[in-house]
Amino acid sequence: MFRKKALRINTYRGYGSENLFRASGRALEDENVDFGSNLSTFKTLRNIYKQLESDEIKNARLTLKLSNGQKFETMTDKEGYYHFATTVDELQTLADQEGWVTYTVSYTKEFTKREISDHNSFESQMLIPSKNAEFGVISDIDDTILHTGVASFFKWRVITNTLFKNYDKRIPIEGVSQFYKKLHLGFNGEPVNPFFYVSNSPWNLYDYLSAFLNKHFFPNGPILLRDFRTPFDKTPKPKLPHKQSEILNLLATYPKLKFILIGDSGEKDADIYTKIALEHPGRILAIYLRDVNHKRKTKRIQRIIDNYNATPILLMESAQEALKHAKKHGYID
């Protein structure tokens, strides 16, 4: 007989508030994905296959434990995901200096007969933005901070970059990490301005993208991805585009916090960002769009910019342009 694979829990770094504890992730069979560096093309392709061809553990009872010993139970859905939220008094007292609340997730006793990786203790974090935050930053990932090729013909560069390049071989957009570090510090020089990364990539690539962000020293922040839909998926399609929905959730969660939105000219970032800024006056400080050097798309984005005046907006060819703009408007020192 074939030996059953061990179980694991893929925890996703998330966000909440002073009294709102939220946790999300996915219960899976452990595919032993190797996130080492300098992997061969074959091993990289095998890793991506393992991430996309995931075997979820549905209807699994899980225990969430805060650092003060407080415990909660939740259950995964038919695709292995869990999304938990509850009120916890004085939750902010458990946060570190940058606002991160650490907790663990584990399988309940009914699964102890199965082998479970990491001694059945999977750590995660939830962000509570500091009261001293000057603003928050919501950033796209593909072609905004990571060379992807979303605007390429039939998106062939997306496929090539994702399937055949390990995270350590992927190239960040020049100067963006330094720009984000400046925004994280803000004008007052405190590392408290929160970052949120939003992408249309599937949750299956969470570890891959997280490893890339860590390698290139981007500010820590929740990575908000979406479920991987197949042509045979019978679940209702979301009413709003994923990025728009996530940004609106952040605006609702932090009603007193203003945001800077960062994206690119390759997809619909300009449409979504300007629409949100117009519908929520006073909440968006600025919009930055990286030019992906696609003549037709650049012209379309320029038309949007020419008819928009609700907030400062910049179509930039380099991070240096963004730095100068942010300094001029007082977002950074």
Rank of each mutant, 00 (worst) to 15 (best):
G189R: 11
M126Y: 04
N220T: 07
G69H: 12
D291M: 10
R303A: 13
E317I: 08
L7N: 03
Q178H: 11
D142T: 10
F164G: 10
I138V: 15
K58T: 14
T104D: 15
K256P: 00
Q320C: 00
W203A: 02
D143H: 10
K324F: 02
D143Q: 13
L127E: 10
Q97S: 15
K268N: 15
G266W: 08
I284K: 05
T74P: 03
L52E: 12
D207N: 15
Y254V: 02
R283C: 02
F35A: 10
D168P: 00
T112R: 08
L261W: 05
Y273N: 00
D34K: 10
D34Y: 09
R13V: 10
H83E: 11
A286P: 00
G16D: 10
V137I: 15
T311P: 00
I57R: 03
N193I: 07
K182H: 09
Y308F: 15
F179I: 01
R303F: 08
K299I: 10
K258D: 00
T87S: 12
T253C: 13
G16W: 06
G266K: 08
L261Y: 01
P255M: 01
N47L: 01
S117I: 01
F212Y: 13
V198F: 09
D55V: 04
V198C: 12
I260S: 02
Y308R: 04
K5N: 02
E174Y: 06
R290S: 06
L289H: 07
T74V: 13
G263W: 08
H325D: 15
E134K: 05
Q70C: 00
N19W: 00
R8M: 04
E73Y: 03
F35W: 14
S210D: 13
E190M: 12
Y82M: 06
R157C: 01
L250I: 03
V176R: 02
G36M: 03
L225M: 08
V137R: 09
A319W: 04
A252M: 05
I173M: 12
D30A: 07
D77N: 15
K109F: 09
R283S: 09
Q125E: 11
A23M: 00
K165C: 03
R26E: 11
K258A: 00
R8F: 03
N200P: 02
E29C: 00
M75D: 09
L7Y: 07
H329W: 05
I171D: 02
T93H: 06
L315E: 11
S201L: 08
N68T: 03
V105A: 14
D333L: 10
L205A: 02
Y81W: 00
K58N: 14
K5H: 09
L278T: 12
